[in-house]
Design a protein around this nucleic acid. Sequence first.
DNA 1: TATCCTTACGGAATTCGTAAGCATG
DNA 2: CATGCTTACGAATTCCGTAAGGATA
Lengths: 328, 328
Amino acid sequence: MNQQQLACFAKVCSEELNVSRAAVALFTSQPAVSRHLQNLEEALGTPLFERRGRKLIGLTNAGKRTLHHAQVVVAQFEALERIAREERNPRGGTLSISTTHTQSNYLLPDVISKIRHDYPELRFNLHQSMPIQVAEMVASGVANIGIATESVSKHPDLIALPAYSWNRLLLVPKGHPLELLDEITLESLASYPMVTYVTSMTGRKLMDSAFEKAGLVPDIVIAANDSDTIKAYVNNGIGIGVIAEMAFTEEDAKRFSMRPLRHLFDNNITRVAIRRAYVPSRVELDFLTRLSPYWTEEEIVNIVEMPKEKLKARIEKIEKSMLKGAGG
Amino acid sequence: MNQQQLACFAKVCSEELNVSRAAVALFTSQPAVSRHLQNLEEALGTPLFERRGRKLIGLTNAGKRTLHHAQVVVAQFEALERIAREERNPRGGTLSISTTHTQSNYLLPDVISKIRHDYPELRFNLHQSMPIQVAEMVASGVANIGIATESVSKHPDLIALPAYSWNRLLLVPKGHPLELLDEITLESLASYPMVTYVTSMTGRKLMDSAFEKAGLVPDIVIAANDSDTIKAYVNNGIGIGVIAEMAFTEEDAKRFSMRPLRHLFDNNITRVAIRRAYVPSRVELDFLTRLSPYWTEEEIVNIVEMPKEKLKARIEKIEKSMLKGAGG
DNA sequence: TATCCTTACGGAATTCGTAAGCATG
DNA sequence: CATGCTTACGAATTCCGTAAGGATA
């Protein structure tokens, strides 16, 4: 039994038991991975996979138990390499974050400037993409921290910590009829052409389901990836905008009127995703604790190492306290 | 960087930076270990040891940070092997415990019979020896769980969890003058020849210091390793006996008279020792939770992975609640 | 001088990639 | 027949133990 065998095993599991893809991800040949799996099973003296012919179709009980420790080993090796890198170049260090446009442009600048104050020479890798890619990038190790509202909590190799909750607001050009309407209702929103996020992003699903429940169909003329695009089209008079609260800046207040929509839609929860068993670095822990008031350093370290069932309960607890406290 | 290099590094650290002894403990040659250390340092790109000439005299900062993760890796590999063993033979499994005579004969029988009820085919390795050897055996992996009152909390590679607190009692033959004395004092104890434990065992040090504080010198005619020997000599009229409370059985009540000594001596704390970063098995967790009411499974798992400073605070907290609650 | 770490060297074992074989859908 | 796992094989690398060399106390 050695590290490479375990790394292969973990990667094959995270690649849905596809040996070929695992080989690509590990920058090696497919027979090499195949052999490592055989040798690992031989070394442990017990099969790890359920097989149908030559295909791997599932994990045995032993495989399930082994997987967790294999992931821990892989993560510890990563941590050792990071420590060495930090010691070689104490000033360096990189915060590698993958996130969506809204988080990247309206949530992160504030947190990052605070972190930069404490770590002046820290470098940032900010990857911006769609929620599913955010999850993929963290799972594959391209980024170490993912921030998104969708997708990240479903990936089996990721742990998704609820970071904060938020809602939507209505964005209209100054002088628009909705600006001064007593109470904004779903009906009033549905009676205007609307510009908002695409289906896969920024809590769009929660909005859709609210309209559906009311038996309404919003007239979404343009669906965009990012808040800035939405603002541009609203500014051009194409329609009314529905965007995330945190995307409304002081600058926007000069051009637009804004109406809160908390009474119409459920709160969304934005989550931070890290790989299971990942060992966060010093800087990453600082970043995460600054990002959300709902967890402490100690908790993060504990949570990463938790078994699945216990983790679920813990996360639900955080979400409850979050939704109670009105969030933001 | 690989598992063997990390294992060598961890072992050299736990063998007080003596490469030769580490080689013996790892069942390999000394040059092999030496080379692994060099390769590890080269792979990490940073020295792990402070050196004077060819001698290792300490850890660098990088070495200290690396050590923890190296220990975790080693422990995870051990856990993987144990899991495989359990899967190969689900009924088997062994509880390997090293402890002192008193614990082994008077504390463990009850706990072990309960555990055997849940795991009928479980095998036990009970090693009985002096406290220092108990610590050594756990550190070296001969046993996985150590139980003792002395020594175990000082070993750098061990975590010592307070399990329970206890005190001494006076053992005299029926009809002895002390049997009916109103109040047993240190003076009255010092005025008779005494039979008790040897200095290195079963909380003997706390007893000595109580006499010393009072300016008294007890007349210890025989110092023994185990409670049964003490009883035998007391029975023969050699002197009065001072033994641990839990060593007094119903059987003893027929032959001896007993007087509590809680008012004269401080409580002792018996501790359970496990290797740092060790991953306890299912059975071991059950055993440990049955052994002491002061911790839960979850806590044990957390504690093992804690960094040193945090651990210290946690343990002190347990001890406080223990000493308050009169213990037993 | 005894202990302990490093270097040198030859043989053994491991590991890798390519190429070819075979099963599944 | 396309996808995907296994087997075969030769080359390169790594790893080990013995033996010898040098440093320290």
